[in-house]
Design a protein around this nucleic acid. Structure first.
Lengths: 260, 260
DNA sequence: GACTTTTCCGTACACTGTACCGTATGGTAT
DNA sequence: ATACCATACGGTACAGTGTACGGAAAAGTC
C-alpha cells in the first residue's frame, strides 16, 4: 500500500471503457492467454475466499498461472480492477421493479437482495466508496431501484433520498454482520467465547455502580443471542423501522395532496 | 500489511489494561521520553491530518522524534494502538442521558454528536469493527446511550436494538459523507467536476432508452445539489425517517400496554 | 521470410509491520 | 561512590505490497 491514490493514471475514459467492455479489439497480435474477464473472475474468487487483505496482484497472477505484470496488459491498475469487480458482482442482483405488493414489498426485496449480495462477497463493503464505478450493472441496479418507487407520489429528489436511505441502511447493517463473521473467523473465537475472555477483566476494571443499565441490557442480550448482538435480528429490526419511517413519510404526502 | 491478524500476541489482558491504563507502573528504570498518552495523541493527530493510510508506526515515531521500535515499549502493536485511539476519541462525545425533550430529542442529540465525531476523526469509520475496544469511554457512551431510552416502555432487548439501529444508521450515513470528502480531496475534483468528466463518456456508452428514470432523477439531484448527492441532506432525511420509524414502534407498544 | 504490433514478464524501488537483539540510561543496593 | 541490572531506546532484517521500466517472445500481415 505505498500509494493509496487510485494509481497514477486515473484516466476516466479508460476506466469506463473497461467497465463497459468497450476496448475488446479483435485481431490482436501476440499471444493471448488472458482476458479481462479471466482476470476479474480470478480476483473475485480470490477475494471471496481469502478476503480483501489477500487480494494482491501477485496472488491473482499466481492463481492464473501467469506473471504478475501480465495483468497490467488488461487492467490499468489494482484500483480499476477493483472497480470492475464491484460492478461485476452487482450483476447478481435481482431486478424487482415489477414485483407485486406495492413499493414497500419491492423495497424490502431490494434490501434483502443487497443484504445477501454483501454476504456473498464480504469484501464489497470494504471497497465501496462514495463515487461508485459507473458500470453497466450498477447503473441498471440504480435504475431498477428507482423504478420500484416511481409513480407513488414522490418528487425526483425524494426518490433519490429514499433509495440512498435504503441502500445506506443495508450497507451499514451488512457491514456489522460481515465484520462480525470476519472477526469470528480471524480470531477463531465465537462472540460468546470472546466475551468470556473479556468479561473477567472487565469486571476487575469497571466500578460496579457506573454501568447499571448497560450491565442489565448486556446481560439480556447475551442471554438472548449467546453473543453481544445478533446481526440478522438487528437487520430485521432496523429494516422494519426504516420502512415504517418511509411509510409515515409517504402517507403524509398522500394526505397532503389527495388524488393528485 | 504483511500480517493482518491483529499482531501475533493478541493478549486480551494486556489490551484491556492498556485501554484502562492499568499498567502505569511507578519507579521505572531507564529513561522515559515517551508515554502511552504521547504515542496515542501523536497517532490521532497523524490520522486526523494525513488519513489512516498514512498512519504507520514509522510516521508516528518520526512525529515524536523517536525510533520506530521505541513505540513497542508502550504499545504491543499497531492494532492495539488503534484500539486506544478509538476509545480515546470517544471521550469527546457528549453525555445526554439527562437532556430534556424525551427520548426522541435525546436520540437525535446522540446521533448528531456521533455524526460530528465521525467528521472530526474521519479515520474512525475505517477502523471500527464489530468487536469494539471495550475501553472506558466506549463503555460510558454505551451506558449513556441506553439511559437515553431507559424507562420508556422498551424491553432490555429492544433497547439494545434501538441503540444498535441509531449508531448503525449514523455510521452508515457518516461513512458516505466522509468518503465523499476524502474522494474529493484525493482526486482534487469536486463531485460536480467529477461528474463532468464521466458524463460525456457515459452518454456515449449508455443506450438512451434503458435508463429513463435514473436520467430524470439524476438530473434533478445534480441540479439541486450540484453533485450526485448531498451527504448532509441525506443524513437529515434518513435520521427523520429512522426516528419516525422508532416512534411508530414505541407508540404501538404504549397503545398495547397503556398505563405502565 | 521480414516487419510490426502486442503480449508477457523479470527486475527494481519505495513502502509496510514487527521480530530479534544490542546498547544506553538511570534507579537502587551495597 | 560503586556495582548491578531492569528498563527504554533503536538498528537491522524479512517478507510482503503496487507498479514503472524495459526486454523478450509470439503471432498477424505483408
Amino acid at each position: 500500500m505505498t500509494t493509496e491514490h487510485t494509481s497514477g493514471t486515473s484516466d476516466p475514459a479508460r476506466s469506463l471503457a473497461l467497465l463497459w467492455r468497450g476496448g475488446e479489439r479483435a485481431g490482436r497480435r501476440g499471444k493471448h492467454d488472458l482476458s479481462v474477464d479471466r482476470v476479474v473472475r480470478a480476483a473475485i474468487e480470490l477475494a471471496d475466499t481469502e478476503g480483501v487483505a489477500a487480494l494482491s496482484m501477485r496472488k491473482v497472477a499466481e492463481r492464473l498461472g501467469v506473471g504478475t505484470m501480465s495483468l497490467y496488459t488488461y487492467v490499468p491498475g489494482k484500483s480499476e480492477l477493483v472497480d470492475v469487480m464491484v460492478d461485476t458482482v452487482h450483476g447478481e442482483l435481482g431486478r424487482h421493479h415489477e414485483a407485486p405488493g406495492g413499493w414497500r414489498a419491492r423495497l424490502e426485496l431490494i434490501a434483502r437482495d443487497n443484504w445477501a449480495l454483501c454476504h456473498r462477497h464480504p469484501w464489497l463493503l470494504q471497497v465501496l466508496t462514495s463515487r461508485p464505478p459507473l458500470g453497466p450493472n450498477i447503473s441498471l441496479d440504480y435504475e431498477y431501484q428507482l423504478r420500484a418507487i416511481d409513480g407513488i407520489g414522490l418528487s425526483d429528489l425524494e426518490m433519490d433520498s429514499v433509495t440512498t436511505l435504503v441502500t445506506g441502511y443495508v450497507h451499514g447493517a451488512a457491514r456489522g454482520s460481515v465484520d462480525a463473521a470476519r472477526d469470528q473467523r480471524d480470531s477463531g473465537l465465537t462472540d460468546e467465547q470472546w466475551w468470556d475472555t473479556q468479561a473477567p477483566f472487565l469486571r476487575k476494571v469497571m466500578e460496579p455502580g457506573r454501568f447499571p443499565v448497560s450491565s442489565r441490557v448486556g446481560a439480556a442480550a447475551g442471554e438472548a443471542y449467546n453473543a453481544a448482538s445478533d446481526p440478522d435480528q438487528a437487520f430485521e429490526f432496523g429494516l422494519a423501522r426504516v420502512l415504517d419511517g418511509l411509510q409515515v413519510f409517504i402517507d403524509r404526502k398522500a394526505d397532503a395532496a389527495p388524488e393528485r
